[in-house]
Design a binder for these strands. Structure first.
Lengths: 224, 224
DNA sequence: GCATATTTCTGAATGAAATTCAATGAATTA
DNA sequence: TAATTCATTGAATTTCATTCAGAAATATGC
């Protein structure tokens, strides 16, 4: 019989069925919380597994019951699913593509601000080499996944008539997504105020609206 | 008296004055070339100092005569100065801001393609935490330095009348620079064809031109 | 040319930190 | 209650980056 450990492979478990699972969930949660705290304070490289374990009040070896390597803790800390944010943007009722994308950009940027700069930095480091991950049964890189989310929002907009048929959906998705990742990197690299909400408004006005403008249907030209 | 080592602090030396300096330069060059080769093949993390030294046919300790840590080799391999590229764009005669920025974007993207994806990945990792560096006598992060280059190109354009006075220079610089960094990250994260020269043309047409359009002087509206 | 000083080179030793693992004990099952 | 499963422990192992003391090469002063 497969062990509990193999069953969940270190993944987060929603519903504990036994006391043992409940305790295991708690241990895992303690480690995640401890790691989140000390990494935010000192940065990923300046925190050792031993330090995370000490903060969580568990033994160092316990870390490896739940995560297969040090880097893996980042995925557990950062649960933001940009794909889901894109779906939400897509589901907004009675609006236009400019507003949908503004909503998405705003959600994206406030999500990374929420995550915190140190976790964000390590998340980028982890994802720079395209490790393909299983997402909804498919092998795909995290980046490609986000890119596709953006494509789907734009494709849906064309179908709805919020964008004209000749809109270069793939390029727009690529460039808008790259812009968001670029702002995330700019933030990490300069620690500058580039992602606050006032800034986000400016961003949408300066970049998103002009990029979409040529492809707005004539009857919606005022929609920025 | 200061030693040679202290004089140059491991920095690259242009003109060797003695045989000893010449030999040192050669050793340094051998290490840089070896590192470039093996990192491109295997990725930064999968290459040890010992392996770089073996490839360069020197002892592991020699690495530290020229570089203060493993990460430092990346700066030596990647000598691209984006600031200089921006200056070149600024100095182009008889043209307009759209063409200047297109030139800059094209130079930027072909430069990172030249550097190679593995070096590029590690370069980003190194620069995610803003280590301030001395550039032309000033303490500044690498990212802030590139950002400023872009600002100067746009400011010069306003002075020349290639952009109207009301152009939001700081925001445009921020977003265009972020877009370039974002494409670099998109490339590293997905290994996709996002930075080839055909792509660059599309990029300028889809993003740069529309962003600048509202601020082109009336007599230059055709300049895209 | 020779002696001394300076700098580079060497590779084994060091140290730090990630990862493993065999033993322990708590929870579960029969 | 006994047997089994599995989380927990922390010391041992492993893997490198980095250091360092001595050797070699080069430069300098006489």
């Amino acid at each position: 019989m497969l062990s509990y450990k193999r069953e969940n492979g270190g993944e987060e478990l929603d519903q504990p069925r036994t006391n043992r699972q409940k305790r295991a969930m708690e241990t895992r949660a303690k480690i995640v919380a401890a790691a989140k705290k000390v990494i935010a304070e000192k940065g990923f490289h300046h925190v050792s597994i031993e330090e995370i374990a000490r903060e969580a009040k568990v033994a160092t070896g316990s870390f490896y019951t739940y995560f297969k390597c040090k880097e893996d803790i980042i995925e557990a800390i950062n649960q933001t699913d940009f794909y889901r944010l894109a779906e939400l943007a897509n589901e907004l009722p009675d609006t236009d593509i400019t507003k949908r994308l503004s909503f998405y950009c705003k959600s994206f940027l406030s999500a990374i601000e929420e995550i915190g700069i140190e976790i964000c930095r390590q998340w980028i480091r982890n994802n720079l080499s395209p490790a393909e991950m299983d997402i909804r049964g498919e092998k795909i890189t995290k980046y490609a996944y986000d890119y596709r989310a953006m494509q789907e929002v734009l494709n849906a907009a064309v179908k709805r008539g919020e964008l004209t048929e000749n809109a270069p959906v793939d390029e727009l998705a690529l460039y808008i997504n790259a812009e968001l990742y670029g702002l995330m990197v700019a933030w990490c690299m300069s620690d500058a105020k580039v992602i606050g909400s006032e800034k986000t408004e400016q961003f949408c006005k300066t970049v998103i609206s002009p990029a979409l403008a040529p492809y707005l249907p004539p009857d919606r030209q005022g929609g920025a």
